Amino acid sequence: MNNTAAETRSVVVEREIPYPPEKIWRALTQPHLIEEWLMKSDFKPVTGHRFDFRAGWGSVDCRVLAVEPNKTLSYTWDAQGLESVVTWTLTPSSAGTRLRMEQSGFRPDQQRAYQGAKIGWQQFLAALEQMLVKVD
């Protein structure tokens, strides 16, 4: 098992967001809000729940791995040959919340997917921050 971990890479994006974890948690777990910044989905914050993200370019098959309200959310993210795990961690901070997103599981031969994720998550998190300004 250790071998595989060493051969895969992760994309990590961290942001300080001036809102409490509860507000950001809603944006990560409510389908109508997820659609505003990420994609359409039938997500439910229930361990074992299978769901997908849908966009113009295709879809992502997912399964919820872990849910700790306002703290941690983890799900599989399988798309176009990529089998990965996305983990969100919310930590209260003096500014509001430190939000950390890690997508792990990129193999060495998935350089294109890895680079795409690095760019994509920056865009998704920027859209998330813009959306948080607008919602209560």
Score class of each variant (00 low, 15 high):
R112Q: 15
N2P: 02
R9Q: 09
H32Y: 14
L28Y: 03
D42N: 15
A27Y: 02
G81Y: 00
S104I: 02
L99K: 11
A5H: 12
L33R: 06
S104F: 04
E83C: 03
R50T: 06
F53P: 01
G81H: 06
L82C: 06
A79R: 08
P18C: 10
V11C: 08
V133D: 13
R9M: 07
P69E: 12
N3P: 04
Q122V: 14
G48D: 07
Q110G: 02
P92Y: 02
F106C: 06
W121A: 13
L125M: 14
G81E: 09
I17C: 02
P45T: 06
V64L: 10
A127Y: 04
T4K: 01
T97W: 00
W88E: 04
T47F: 02
A126K: 09
M101F: 11
N70V: 07
R112H: 12
W88H: 04
T76K: 08
E22Y: 13
A6N: 10
E68F: 09
I24Q: 01
V67Y: 04
L28N: 00
S104M: 07
R100Y: 05
L82H: 03
I34C: 00
M131P: 06
K23L: 14
E14Y: 04
F106V: 02
K118H: 14
Q123E: 13
V133E: 14
T8D: 01
P20F: 08
S74E: 09
L38F: 10
R63S: 11
G96E: 08
I17M: 06
R100K: 15
I17K: 00
R63D: 06
P69D: 08
D109Y: 03
V86I: 14
V135S: 13
I24K: 00
V11F: 05
T72G: 04
E16S: 15
E36G: 08
N2Y: 05
S59R: 12
P21Y: 00
G105E: 03
R107Y: 01
A6V: 09
I24M: 01
E68D: 13
D136Y: 14
L28E: 04
M1S: 15
A5C: 03
G81L: 03
Y19S: 07
V64W: 06
A66H: 12
C62Q: 02
V135W: 13
F43W: 01
L33E: 05
R50I: 10
F51E: 01
V11M: 07
I24T: 01
W37Q: 05
D42G: 13
R112Y: 04
Q103T: 13
A117D: 07
C62Y: 02
Q123A: 15
R63V: 12
L132G: 09
R107V: 00
L125Y: 13
D109C: 01
Q111V: 09
D52L: 07
K71R: 14
T87V: 12
R9V: 01
V13E: 13
D109W: 05
R26Q: 15
A5F: 08
H32E: 11
I17D: 02
Q110P: 06
P21V: 03
K23E: 11
G81N: 09
S93H: 07
R26P: 12
V86W: 00
F124C: 14
G116L: 03
P20S: 07
K134I: 15
R9N: 03
S74G: 04
W37R: 08
G81I: 04
V60L: 09
W57Y: 15
V60M: 09
V67E: 00
